[in-house]
């Protein structure tokens, strides 16, 4: 698999660390909302199809990436810097 890092260009999979669902971007604000934290940490869908997920270009620029990947084909439909998406607030 190859990933087209927005900062470095196309690189091999071995340079990247896979973290998991992009759900991790939306950390609950209320520390006492245990249900929200439970959902944030543990509840994941397992789609056969498009999945939004977080990767880190750990052996490259160390940018955290938000990637939309088709789990059936490993085709990557979009790659953004997680910082940009978070700053725009689209997932919060």
């Amino acid at each position: 698999m190859r990933i087209n890092c927005p900062l470095c260009g196309e690189r091999d999979l071995v340079e990247f660390h896979y973290e998991g669902s992009s759900k991790l971007m939306a950390r609950p604000k209320d520390e006492n909302d245990m249900d929200a934290f439970h959902d944030y940490l543990h509840i994941r869908s397992n789609p056969a199809g498009l999945n939004n997920e977080l990767w880190s270009h750990e052996y490259g620029c160390r940018a955290w990436l938000l990637i939309c990947r088709d789990t059936n084909t490993h085709k990557i439909l979009s790659i953004d810097l997680a910082r940009d998406v978070k700053t725009k607030g689209s997932l919060d």
Partner: peptide, 12 residues
């Protein structure tokens, strides 16, 4: 990695 995650993903 955790610190970068916090800075880029959780708290830019």
């Amino acid at each position: 990695r955790h610190l970068e995650f916090v800075l880029q993903v959780l708290r830019p």
